[in-house]
Write a protein that binds this DNA or RNA. Structure first.
Length: 564
RNA sequence: GUGCCAGUAGCUCAGCUGGAUAGAGCAACGGACUUCUAAUCCGUAGGUCGGGUGUUCGAAUCAUCUCUGGCACGCCA
């Protein structure tokens, strides 16, 4: 058992089912085909700890007023051996359950038992899931979109791990295709410009204008000089790409590592072309009749797959498109490597690609539900209350490296994980570095530091945590203590919900609530200096809070300082 | 033009399978440090949930229409 909420929910459902059958047995209620019984935590504390609306749900079926049904059920309720103290009918027909504090004390016992594993649940049952995120073009540095996608993807992966999935973090390296061509052309142009003069060599219109391209060329020239002038353009571009690409990829790895992201797999698009997997995939589609040929190109048959239009898989020059490679890639994930589930994080500007990719799984016998795409809206950076522009064309982009240098990993990851993926995100650079109450990162970290301070101060006096079974937890009954324990009890439930919705942002908001409950407790109740048994009970509560905050911060890869 | 996403307090955002009086943070205003860290806490104020219609015991949530903003509709990725 690692989720008290789950246990309570099961108790309530069982108690209600029993009450229904007793009522039916006594002829108080007609036979009812029970729908699933839902429980919720009422917003108002006076409505109890949990409630259910089942009486309202079955009112129509029973042909009785919901309140009447609820009253019958409550009169026949059996709550022996449960946390339930009493049940009451309220409002239009809610049944409110009031629990004894045992579930809160059991929560503390559970936390002490599980320690850093507290919060883990097993809804994943070891299902193999591939989480692919960032997957930026290795033609330049990582930008804000990659930063958001990185924080989100990494936290989704972490949440799924905690929820019992077998997670693989993966980066798809787009080291083939058109953008690599343009990368080569850009490098070549800068190279030639260096020797022949800027005005003598035209820069490709859709080339990469960034400074980093010039830097690559400069450092190449420092070592190898002008030897490439005598090569053919093809050779020249190949050599320059072979030189610069690994550098870019290494820089991406380093930046992501600084950002707290470690991948299990770096998957090369080029390898799919080299191994023949792309060609094989197109051939397969051709054989199965999912392609059509027109205008010298091979197209994916949109009509047959329920898509709006056809998509080019192989251009009339024989070069496959990214779409062909992407299909081969996902076929590799599902068929070759046997993932049960694949989650991709894409910027919202790629949303048009979602339906196509899901549909394209069908010919391979892959249920499209096994591919899940999380779209996230793009980021706007603010500085001095104004939008900090980032323009890829002028090369004056604010990169992930710049961001980490300016605000640090903790603030960056925290901010990107505060909001749901679907909402636009305004990143306030000034706020992220502000060391004040306006900054939510410090709010949470401060709670952790405060706890550590309490533990430190007590340790100096030779007072340390007792084993939980030697502590009288029933002494914890102040409102602030109850509220804090209640918050701590929610954690496994939060992990469950975050995993089900693929919304790690709720975990970030959750830890802010834990911090808030702790700060309130701190201001209302003292630990040090209280009568010994009470002090020990509170020390236990404080330590459990520390464990939960640390677990969450570790989950989202943010430091948990012991002093601030 | 078609499609996708969004519109909730001055600002930034939560709101789970429809539920009880729509929440939080910041900003504003008023309070609390001789006591474990005041990077904290307590209180006050702040709303036509973009707008209309419908579905029903009940709608911020579902359906539909409409307005506004962002994005996508390439032999780019």
């Amino acid at each position: 058992m690692n989720n008290i909420f789950e246990k309570i929910r099961e108790q309530i459902i069982q108690v209600m089912k029993d009450a229904f059958s007793i009522c039916e047995g006594k002829g108080l209620l007609p036979a009812i085909d029970l729908p699933e019984i839902f429980t919720e935590v009422p917003k108002q504390r006076e409505f109890g700890d949990f409630s259910t609306n089942i009486a309202m749900q079955v009112a129509k079926q029973a042909k009785m007023p919901p309140r009447k049904i609820a009253e019958l059920l409550v009169s026949e309720i059996k709550t022996d051996n449960t946390y339930i103290n009493k049940a009451e009918v309220a409002g239009p027909g809610f049944i409110n359950f009031y629990l004894n504090s045992g579930w809160l004390y059991d929560t503390l016992r559970l936390i002490q038992d599980k320690k850093e594993k507290y919060g883990e649940v097993d809804i994943g049952k070891g299902i193999k899931v591939n989480v692919e995120f960032v997957s930026a073009n290795p033609t330049g540095p990582l930008h804000m979109g990659n930063a958001r996608g990185g924080a989100l993807g990494d936290c989704i992966a972490s949440v799924l791990e905690k929820a019992g999935y077998d997670v693989t973090r993966e980066f798809y390296i787009n080291d083939a295709g058109n953008q690599i061509e343009r990368f080569g052309l850009s490098l070549e142009a800068r190279y030639l410009q260096h020797f022949l003069g800027e005005d003598k060599v035209a820069f490709p219109e859709d080339g990469y204008h960034g400074e980093d391209i010039i830097d690559h060329v400069k450092s190449y020239i420092e070592v190898h000089g002008d030897a490439l002038l005598s090569k053919t353009p093809e050779e020249r571009r190949q050599i320059l790409v072979d030189y610069a690409l690994p550098i870019n990829i290494q820089r991406i790895r380093d930046a992501l590592s600084d950002y707290g992201i470690e991948y299990d797999v770096w998957f090369s698009e080029k390898s799919l072309h080299d191994s023949g997997a792309v060609k094989e995939t197109v051939d397969f589609l051709k054989e199965k009749g999912y392609t059509i040929e027109k205008e010298g190109a091979i197209w994916l048959n949109g009509e047959k797959l329920g898509l709006e239009k056809d998509e080019v898989l192989v251009r009339n020059n024989g070069v496959p498109t990214y779409m062909a490679a992407d299909i081969a890639y996902h076929r590799n994930k599902f068929v070759t490597r046997g993932f049960d589930w694949a989650i991709n994080l894409w910027g919202a500007d790629h949303h048009g690609h979602v339906a196509r990719m899901k549909a394209a799984m069908e010919p391979f016998g892959i249920d499209s539900d096994r591919l899940e795409v999380v779209l996230f809206q793009l980021v706007r950076l603010y500085r001095n209350g104004e939008i900090a522009r980032m323009s890829k064309r002028t090369g004056k982009t604010i990169s992930l490296n710049d961001l980490l240098e300016e605000v640090g990993r903790d603030a960056a990851r925290f901010f990107f994980n505060m909001k749901t993926a679907g909402s636009h995100l305004d990143f306030d650079l000034d706020l992220a570095v502000k060391q004040s109450n306006e900054n939510p990162v410090f709010y949470v970290q401060y709670a952790h530091a405060r706890i550590c301070s309490i533990l430190r101060k007590l340790a100096e006096e030779g007072i340390s945590l007792r084993p939980v079974e030697e502590v009288d937890l029933t002494l914890l009954n102040e409102d602030e203590e109850i509220e804090l324990m209640r918050k701590l009890a929610e954690y496994p439930e939060e992990i469950t919900l975050a995993a089900k919705t693929l919304e790690p942002s709720r975990i970030t908001r959750y830890v802010m609530e834990v911090a808030s409950s702790f700060h309130t407790f701190y201001n209302a109740c003292r630990v040090k200096g209280e009568e010994e048994e009470l002090m020990m009970a509170r020390l236990m509560l404080v330590d459990c809070t520390r464990i939960v905050i640390k677990n969450v911060l570790e989950l989202i890869s943010i430091s948990a300082p012991e002093k601030m």
